[in-house]
Design a protein around this nucleic acid. Structure first.
Lengths: 221, 221
DNA sequence: TAGATTGTTAATCGATTAACAATC
DNA sequence: TAGATTGTTAATCGATTAACAATC
């Protein structure tokens, strides 16, 4: 999935670096559950797939220093990454499009991260509005601006058909949303300051098929 | 979503370039439906987000030459990209894990690309096996190796819980699969020659939330 | 101490973009 | 012709990695 970024933005951390920090957090969470207390850059690099020096560089960015003797203390490092990545308070996410995929996403994210969870879903279908699905209230599209503004929602998931994606994105942005996770197979046009991460499943499957064929061709040669 | 690649592979086209070609194809398909016959590199670049010279470089790779007078002929270019990206014959894809997400993916991919479609689904739940879901037969996990081998399946989608992903990946690879689209939030260990594209939705949502906050901070400053 | 790892800088690598002669 | 675009090379840019003194 490729991500779009509007011009004229100078982020402190690059998009790739933020992605890696999220991955490190997930890996460190696993280590913590296994009872591992310390970790060295080369161990984390092996798990994440990369060079130890890149891990050290990434971790420097979050402001937590390891020591040559003990490497990094897992619990402290997790806290530091959290301070860097997470909002100070709880953050609500909106989801638009309660179809098959939308409901699957609601199930996937339910209870995963209390500080970053879907707190409102929207759909045009009156059959779906008013219901509570996977612990999340489903509203009519008419309520979008109001609910987004009242809850200070800044991030949204788009699981609507391709034809509707741009219109819905425009409405979300007008209501204050500044980050979109887009599952619709279209490139959204967004103003500067709005971040779009495209989860283009069709493109990804084509890539997998292409490289699967390449891997096979190499084996035969 | 980050992708893993096993070492010692010298692909002709980089992963990013293949992703862009898939995107160009989608955009060109849209143009063709609108009745557009010719397109210039700067037009495609504007739609895809990038520089015209990169588009020209990418298109050179597929072996179709444009002309200074007419740019690229949309229909011919689509054919050339197809020849480059697609398999000569129809390709079947397997999907493992017929949960909420798995069924949503089956619905999403159903009828989208006749030459690259999910032709077999697998699940441990006996309630699901034997059924036909979105036009696709659902098999028991016991039948995995047999069905994959008989149909020459080389690409698979993993929509199983994180804990089961590695085991399922191992089985798929043993049966001949060389490309995986992985929705489970884990990094898979795969041998050289096997391509993994990770659709890490949890990581992506965290990225969106992070950059949404950054975009907002910039507006205030 | 000896050995391994750290933070950090310098070197490397690859990808992106700018530039330009050739072309229509 | 004049003007815009092409294929293609050279220059630029950024990210990754290698290296090393400092540290435990």
């Amino acid at each position: 999935m490729a991500a779009q970024r509007s011009a004229n933005q100078s982020q402190k951390a690059s998009e790739a670096a933020v992605g890696r920090l999220c991955l490190y957090r997930a890996l460190l969470g696993g280590l913590e559950r296994e009872g591992v207390e310390n970790v060295y850059s080369h161990q984390l690099a092996a798990l994440a797939g990369g060079a130890p020096s890149r891990v050290r560089r990434d971790l420097m960015a979050v402001g937590y220093d390891g020591s040559p003797a003990r490497g990094y203390v897992v619990s402290d490092l997790l806290r530091s990454i959290g301070r860097f990545l997470d909002a100070p308070a709880q953050e609500g996410v909106a989801l638009v499009g309660v179809g098959n995929l939308g409901r699957a996403l609601m199930a996937f994210f339910a209870g995963r991260r209390p500080n970053l969870s879907i707190i409102a879903a929207f759909d045009t279908d009156p059959e779906k509005t008013g219901r509570v699905i996977h612990g999340c209230r489903c509203y009519s599209m008419d309520a979008l601006a109001e609910v987004v503004e009242e809850n200070g929602i800044r991030a949204a998931i788009l699981s609507v058909p391709a034809a509707e994606a741009q219109g819905v994105a425009d409405r979300l942005i007008r209501a204050g949303v500044r980050g979109l996770l887009n599952f619709a197979p279209v490139r959204l046009r967004v103003p500067a300051g709005v971040f779009v991460e495209n989860m283009d499943m069709a493109v990804s499957l084509e890539k997998v098929a292409y490289f699967a064929r390449q891997g096979e061709a190499e084996e035969e040669s």
